[in-house]
Nucleic acid binder design. Structure first.
Lengths: 186, 186
DNA sequence: CCTCATTTCTAGCGATGCTAGATTTTCTAG
DNA sequence: CTAGAAAATCTAGCATCGCTAGAAATGAGG
């Protein structure tokens, strides 16, 4: 079984290479620049190889990249939330969330602007999403039905996208975070 | 000059027909279904005619549709804001904003998920955008630097998208609006 | 060395956005 | 009313896209 293991490992490695390359290309030039031909070229193979690893094609690749993004975002948010709820935790969580979205715009795009078909790894994404959501709730110290957390998430999500779209000036972010912190801790 | 006027009017009419058809097709089947061939077919002409009216191609068509969306959204928000600021105005504005986004998802998508190149009708969109922004500020009664309004806008924008993406349950919206109204009027 | 399964590639399909050049229609002027 | 100019429209095609069937290369076991 050693050889089979080696083969499986090679397969896993190339799979990961595809994901890493796709993500890097997306961050460099946007998802539209991640074409099957360019991606295949970048990993030193031809297009059909991609479909051997990801039968769902580009969509499945994006979705898998997005899944990693959910994990990372949840981890970052959880780490920022820290122990107790309160203004400090809310501010830290907001910083972490906005920072993540700004640092990985294409990844964030794959996570949230991709239609969800409830097929590929949907449940995993859902679990990671909930983990991040819980971190927000923890920072708020919410005990209700989650409406406040949903509102906080909405604000962070919307702010991320509007900043990225250039609809809000970057230098005003501290003011927005202060405003958010104040309004979400009362 | 009557004949020249008649010609200009025919041109304007067909231009509007292209926009209306594109918008309807987008709302019916999404923007990816709005292809140059299908759109040309739908208006009874061939592809190059589209480029006669919109040299920028599909992008310019989407942008022009989006511009109308900005106007409509600003009008709806202004109408909802009414006279005085206060909880009622904030709730009404939120309802109006979320209702508009939910009722015209593809239009909203064109408005905010389309990259802005600062070329096509950018300044008009900016003006309408500011008008809607001012309506939000009026509902809040804000007099500061706009941070609170930006935060409100972020929350509404994010909530719209998360609802559309199915990340938030529709039936919880009243709770979210209540939460928002409470936190934005203190 | 041969066989056979796996891996990889070649070549192609239909569809996309877009455009150059031919063709038809419409308007104008004599 | 008609001939020619101008405008509007179409035909046909390009490069690129995501994706795939079938041929060729590769590698392991007998």
């Amino acid at each position: 079984m050693v050889k089979a293991g080696a083969r499986a490992q090679r397969v896993a490695e190339r799979r990961q290479q595809i994901l890493d390359t796709a993500r890097a290309m997306a961050e460099a030039d946007g998802w539209t620049a991640v074409t099957s031909r360019r991606l295949a070229d970048a990993i030193g193979y031809t297009q059909p190889v991609l479909y051997g690893h990801f039968p769902g094609g580009k969509t499945e690749i994006m979705r898998t990249v997005a899944l990693a993004g959910f994990t990372e975002l949840a981890a970052a948010t959880r780490a920022a939330a820290g122990g107790q709820p309160g203004p400090q935790a809310v501010a830290a969580v907001a910083e972490a969330y906005l920072g993540f979205a700004a640092a990985n715009p294409s990844l964030y795009e794959a996570m949230f602007q991709l239609p969800i078909d409830a097929r590929f790894a949907q449940e995993d994404a859902e679990a990671e999403l909930r983990s991040g959501f819980d971190a927000l709730a923890a920072a708020l110290g919410e005990d209700g039905d989650g409406a406040a957390t949903e509102l906080l998430w909405s604000a962070l999500h919307g702010m991320s996208l509007l900043e990225r779209a250039g609809r809000m000036r970057q230098e005003h972010r501290p003011g927005r975070i202060a405003e958010l912190t104040a309004r979400f801790t009362s």
